[in-house]
Design a binder for these strands. Sequence first.
RNA 1: GGGCUCGUAGCUCAGUCGGUAGAGCGCACCCCUGAUAAGGGUGAGGUCACAGGUUCAAGUCCUGUCGGGCCCA
Length: 970
Amino acid sequence: MSAPESQTKTAKPEKNRYKSTLNLPRTSFPMKANLLQNENQSTKRWDKMGLYQKLRDAGGSKPRGRFVFHDGPPYANGSIHLGHLMNKCLKDFVVRSKTVMGFDVPYVPGWDCHGLPIEHKVMTGLVESGKIKKLMDLEDDKRRVAIRRECQKNAEKFHKLQTQQMQRLLTVADYENPYLTMKPEYEGAVLEVLGDLCAQGLVYRALKPVHWSVDNETALAEAELEYYDREDLSVFVDFECADAADVYGRFGIAEDERPNTKPSLMIWTTTPWTLVANMAVAVNERFDYSLVRVDGNVTVLASGLVEQVTKQAKSEEVEVLATVKGTELLGVRYTSPVREDVPPADGPVDKAWSVVAAEYVTLEDGTGLVHTATGHGADDYQTGLREGIGVYCPVKGDGTYDDTVPEWLRGQNVFEANEKVAKKLKESGHLFHENRFMHSYPHDWRSKGPVIFRATEQWFVGVDRPTVRDGKDLRQLAMEQTERDVEYIPAWGKNRMRGMLESRPDWCISRQRSWGLPIPSFVMESGESFMTEQSCRAVARVIAEKGSDAWFTMTPEDLLVHYDASLDSEAPQELRDRVLTPAALTKGNDILDVWFESGSSWNAVMRQRSGGEDFPVELYLEGSDQHRGWFQLALLTGLGSRGVAPFKALLTHGFMVNKDGKKLSKSSGDTIEELFKEFGADVLRWWVSSLAYENDVKVDHEFFKGAGESYRKVRNTLRFMLSNLDDFDAGKDAVDLASVSPASVDAWALGELDRVTAEVCSAYDRYQFKHAHNALYNFCNDTLSSVYLAAVKDRLYCDKVDSPRRRRTQTVLHRITDQLCRLLSPVLCHTSDEAFRSLHGDDDACVHLVELLPESGVKPAEAWERAMVARDAGLLAIESAKATGVENPMDAGVVLADSDGSLDGVDLPDLVDLLGVSSVTLDKDAQAASVQDLRDRPRCERSWKRDGTVRERSDGGMLSDRDAEALGLE
RNA sequence: GGGCUCGUAGCUCAGUCGGUAGAGCGCACCCCUGAUAAGGGUGAGGUCACAGGUUCAAGUCCUGUCGGGCCCA
């Protein structure tokens, strides 16, 4: 510091002479939040008072009635991650914002407990520990019950962990009484829905290919596959066309130029054993296909693959005769080189053994014509569905052929059949080329043996089947309600849902696992399965009481104790006639797709708990992946069961990506626990509230730091207001709001409070938490901190403690703080409560039990709008005056241009404080704001203002009139 | 490959019906030291992903390209 400067600063020898006479801010509300500890205190306090129940008890008196919001169940496996963080915070914002705005918002959290990921993890553990061997010796039902026990323990463990973490996130919900999809009453309610769908004629059984372990004779899910390299035989096979003239015609070959051999379609396959199950040949409509003469034969190949294929086979004579688009080949008929007759498929076969179109046909390898076995491939199956070709699977569970194949293959193991098929093809002259090659092939994770695709009987919900109710099918109903009755937030969700509904296939609802809710079907002696509405409901009653383990421990007779086949018109005749009794039935082995369980939550949770009142619910809120998942499947079950969508509105959020906008990798970034520790829940919640959640959300450690900074700003604003209310007793000292002069800056501040309240309410109403966040932040940062609080500091510090002006400002401050706490409470639920209790000096107060305050009723003078513009001009003038040496605004007086005299409408002393200067004069003739240098005026030793009234007082100090009065001096 | 969607200041985001590009953070400079691990003022910063098109006028509407995301195949 240079000498002259230090002199000006120390020129006030008794700088702090009057400091002790000021009403300086004082509060026990700490600047440092210490969220880690204090949030736990808050949780304990809320638990102790029974916040959730208290809110329900007060529900009846809520002015805006009930708002029913339904939680989508996260999977009870593992710790919560960033995705849950956003999802759960958004849901809590909905619950709390609707509550503070006057709704009664019951909220039941849920967990998805069944399913493969848990079963797989448990099985892996059993395999690793060697316990699996013991289980394998048990009989089927006992083994499954043992596995289910382990799975249940696992689900319970993670339900508990996640509950803890969600509570640590300060979300408010009925955690005492959540819904778990593995609870008996939930399971019963799911089966009720299944019964409803049966009643509507939507449930059927049909073949569908699945990954099948030959070793363990069981279906496998994707997660149970391990891919290893395996050497296989691949074959290029000629399928003879049935009608040579037709094919030559399609290629435009004149009759006299046609070769006299029959043309073929050349396919390539790495699973020769499936050739006997061939149902079609697929081409890509957009590709070119050539008719080629190769070593005496005439065959069809994709034009782009002619060279590659013939080179591989070392063909000597290769001549392209003609070329057409794939479209031209559609419908070409051919015959099988390995069997005489079209296979006895489950479904129509009139289009079997013909050329069909498929988009997945590529030119990467093979011939561009794809052998399609509807019972032995996922793509093949879909093609069959689309083209109306039935599913045929001649392979039994043990991997051997059944009796529907030609005699030379019957009973053969399919892997061993490969060579035999190739040999047969070679003999009959249909084998163009064969070779051995290595490829990645799926294997059973447990036996390590190779897996096949095998069609098995599965249960389906048909989306194109007419409902008994009104003849409309699910797809039609879903499209109608999507179009008309469901609100999508954001609006493009509707397009997305529509597109997904248009293309969705029938819903396969069965799985061949242990950890889930059994499909209550029974197998009769004939081998046929049966399940009707009534049988389903009968079992549902038992399961609702005893839980789904009962399926594995009870006999069919006991499970059907509430069922009387003779009263069930849908039951098979032999059961109705009591030719067959339940005792002679065996239990089906399938469990339900977990999506059916979670998709039925509207029934299990909302409808049943409320006795029907809470259906349909107001809102479902999940990530945009749920347009195909929970939203859609809840829609299908709801429409099938009740004929209406289970929700009135769907809100979707995007996904977390890293700071470069790329998919988040599983192992990177902070864990939730680390985030809690470093930032605290309120900061995390504050961050979530700032997000444009409808899009992808970038996440990075730095962003949380930024949220922390901005949180501190809000906290400090609250703290400063609280610290200036320390001597204020609202019951005694408050002035009537109606008496607040419209010309005062206090009236202006109340006007701003009403404005921000309206803005935040409107944002909360539309779930635009980001708008609320920005509005609240700007209110704290700008309206309060930089404008209002900066202006009223002078009076709060220097006015007499109980001067009317000071009390008026404190009244307004109190009001603002109170309302700000309420507005912030949905997001900063700990901090707002902490401030609220501090404000009211009542440790038992709770901001979450109160609603927003109504409008203040104070209308600020219209002149305030212009006054604030004039303030900006004044600030610019002060800034430029710094160049002339007036560096401290307290050394300045500001002249404001006021050509029409309109600034008369506001209190001049308030304008002085808003500019932070010593005086303001209004000048009708001035064109622009200007600054007066007041440095030669005496300076008040107490308020540091040079307001023109400063003189020596009886105590010898230099004081302004106001400060002298405050001290009771002449 | 298909459906939906996103791309605006270094960062996070506004931008209504097509009419002169906005805010906060961060940054720079300054003030205050009576909100002090605080507070205040001022300022710099943009080829609105790219290329076409419609229009008197395009961040905004249309087509395509590039780069992300979700869901399918």
